[in-house]
Amino acid sequence: MRAPSTEPAGVGRIEMKLRKVSQLFNTLDPSPFRESDLALQAEDYIVDRALELPSNIPIEIVIHLPSDELLQASEFDIASTIKDYFGLRRQAVSREMGELFKTGRLSLVVGLAILSVCLLLGWLFGQRMREDPLSQILTESFLILGWVAIWKPSEIFLYAWPPIAARRKLFLRLSEATVVLDGKPAT
């Protein structure tokens, strides 16, 4: 397999040199090409190379095969299988992001409720026993517990979703990629 290249026309090219078409697909999947999953190594290779390309250019996946394999392969079937596979991966990542935001919203409601109760309890302990060290410890403890309760939604809404959104965008680009089969003499 070769490294990606950028064509002068602004197309990011990912080239794969294979001995057999079957190297592209999961060998444990009994489905014909149209419904097959990509082999993990093929997916990883394509995704890794796509990450190296600029994000604002279209992707072209060129699969080099020996002539005898090329005769048996249907460019339409292989291209549609690759595109459909990454389309399904994009949908799965979209569902994952939806679930993450659903969890984030629920944990935000719970976290804000706990924070409010903790702040109220801390204030009450602070008002009743102003100089008592125990009340200061309790007041600070409730404050810390309240902030810990909103840790998870803060993490979700600030940090967890951008990598998932980037992965979804990458899978969309790969589902829209041009796939070309190229034959060469068998060696």
Rank of each mutant, 00 (worst) to 15 (best):
A3H: 12
A9W: 00
R13V: 15
E15C: 06
E15H: 10
M16K: 03
M16W: 01
L18D: 10
L18P: 04
V21Q: 14
V21L: 15
T27W: 06
D29I: 02
P30N: 01
S31V: 06
S31W: 02
F33C: 12
R34D: 14
S36N: 13
L38T: 08
A42R: 02
V47N: 07
A50Y: 06
L53Q: 09
N56Y: 11
D68K: 12
D68H: 15
E69H: 01
E69F: 05
F76H: 13
I78R: 09
F86N: 07
F86Y: 15
G87S: 15
R89S: 14
Q91A: 15
R95P: 02
E96C: 06
L100T: 14
K102I: 05
T103N: 03
G104V: 05
G104S: 06
L108H: 03
L115M: 14
L119F: 11
L119V: 12
L120A: 12
R130Y: 08
R130G: 04
L134Q: 08
G146N: 08
W147Q: 15
A149T: 00
W151Y: 14
W151N: 08
K152C: 01
S154Y: 07
Y159L: 13
A160M: 11
F171M: 10
L172P: 00
R173C: 09
R173D: 04
A177L: 03
L181T: 05
A186I: 03
